[in-house]
């Protein structure tokens, strides 16, 4: 990212690009990493609904896909809320970097 000076910024502190925060990746904040176990997934999409970082990808057909690790901060809400299948969670938290 190049440095911007005041002359080059839009006047009135306006941000002209909607959703430009996507250029700032927050995945580096993570110390715990969620892991998706597809065979235990019942496609309830609660993880998608409750993710504060919009980091659960969904396919065009509305099916759950992999996590978006570029933005996932590793809070673990998805793993706690995951109902799983027959008592087996479809999301588990693992230590980052292991």
């Amino acid at each position: 990212m190049s440095k911007k000076f005041w002359e080059t910024l839009p006047q009135g502190s306006v941000v002209l690009e909607a959703g430009s925060s996507a250029k700032f990746k927050t995945g580096g904040w993570r110390s715990m990493k969620p892991k998706w176990i597809e065979e235990n997934c019942i496609q309830c999409l609660f993880c998608w609904m409750y993710c504060p970082d919009m980091s659960v990808k969904v396919t065009a057909e509305g099916k759950r896909a992999e996590f978006n690790y570029d933005y996932c901060k590793g809070c673990g809400i998805c793993a706690l809320e995951c109902p799983g299948k027959k008592g087996n969670k479809a999301i588990v938290m693992e230590e980052e970097g292991k």
């Binding site: 996507a22 919009m54 969904v58």
Partner: peptide, 17 residues
């Protein structure tokens, strides 16, 4: 889930906010 979020990722709220 097929729709587009109108609040983007990359915001800097704490983890789990």
């Amino acid at each position: 889930a097929k729709g587009e979020d109108r609040f983007a990722h990359g915001h800097r709220m704490c983890a789990g906010c």
